[in-house]
Amino acid sequence: MWFPGHLAFSLLLCLPFIVYMKRERALALSFLGVFALLPDYIHLGDLRGFSHSFLGLGAMLLMFLLPLIIAFRPRLALILLAITAAASHLLADTYIGTVTPFYPWDDTWLQVHAFNSAFDIRTEVVLFGVAAIAVTALRPLEALRNIDDYDVRERGALIVTSALVIAMAGLQAVYFLIVSQGPGLDLFRSLLLAAFAVSVLFSSVFFIKTLVKKQHSKSISIVVK
């Protein structure tokens, strides 16, 4: 799957965590964006086989999640969300895409439907639409306002994770434009590209909101001095 499909599928699986984290909902969505795409961070040659295996997924979780835990000490619910989102990537790619769950002991690829096919693109558009409805019900504007109440660690975690989502979604969108071609898919291709744009926009809003608040706090302290 492409990023929008992974994001949507992970969101639906992780919905209980996101509902539970009312105050940190923006941070939860940002963590979701990072870890839903985690195995695709190394997507070249044999490295893809490794990253799309149980062993590789565990190694990448340690590589990415451990520094976040050390630096920002996220709540247990966020850690569990990250693990669930990362695991959902393999599940989604088993259905649309390819995985090698037991690599390097067994390099057999598992696949149900082909990646970047008409079925893939249409399915991802539908999934993203369902996920968008769910996010709307989660009051995203309230989640945005709650960023003002984040402490320093939560702000730091949101800056890092939202920046990663912006970078990865942007890079995949460019790659999608290059390789995704096919007759009769113009509408769904455009819709999926719009899903990329929405993902980048949301993360950019989180990122800017956090930075603006930080700068505002600094200016207040300067005035007081």
Rank of each mutant, 00 (worst) to 15 (best):
3 F>G: 01
4 P>E: 04
5 G>I: 01
5 G>T: 02
8 A>V: 01
13 L>V: 13
13 L>R: 00
14 C>Q: 00
16 P>S: 03
19 V>N: 01
20 Y>R: 06
21 M>L: 11
23 R>N: 10
25 R>F: 05
27 L>A: 11
29 L>Q: 05
29 L>G: 01
32 L>A: 04
35 F>L: 13
36 A>Y: 07
36 A>K: 07
37 L>I: 13
37 L>N: 14
39 P>L: 12
39 P>V: 12
40 D>C: 08
41 Y>D: 05
43 H>R: 13
43 H>I: 02
47 L>D: 10
47 L>N: 09
50 F>E: 06
52 H>I: 01
53 S>R: 11
55 L>M: 15
58 G>H: 07
60 M>R: 03
60 M>P: 02
62 L>I: 14
66 L>W: 13
69 I>E: 14
70 I>Q: 11
72 F>E: 07
72 F>T: 01
73 R>G: 04
73 R>M: 08
75 R>S: 12
75 R>D: 14
76 L>S: 04
76 L>H: 03
79 I>V: 15
79 I>G: 02
80 L>T: 00
84 T>H: 03
89 H>E: 09
90 L>R: 04
90 L>G: 12
93 D>M: 12
94 T>N: 11
96 I>L: 07
97 G>I: 01
100 T>P: 00
102 F>G: 01
105 W>I: 06
106 D>F: 01
107 D>Y: 03
108 T>W: 00
108 T>S: 14
111 Q>G: 12
111 Q>Y: 05
112 V>K: 12
117 S>H: 06
117 S>F: 05
119 F>T: 09
119 F>L: 14
120 D>Q: 05
120 D>T: 07
121 I>Q: 02
122 R>N: 14
122 R>M: 07
126 V>Q: 04
131 A>G: 08
134 A>D: 06
137 A>P: 00
147 I>L: 14
148 D>P: 03
152 V>H: 11
154 E>P: 07
154 E>G: 14
155 R>T: 09
163 A>N: 03
166 I>M: 15
166 I>N: 04
168 M>F: 15
170 G>D: 08
170 G>R: 07
174 V>M: 11
176 F>H: 09
178 I>F: 11
181 Q>S: 13
185 L>Y: 02
189 R>K: 12
190 S>N: 10
194 A>S: 11
194 A>N: 04
196 F>T: 05
198 V>S: 04
202 F>I: 15
205 V>G: 12
205 V>T: 09
211 L>G: 11
212 V>E: 14
215 Q>C: 03
216 H>P: 00
218 K>I: 14
219 S>Q: 13
221 S>K: 09
223 V>W: 12
224 V>P: 00
224 V>M: 10
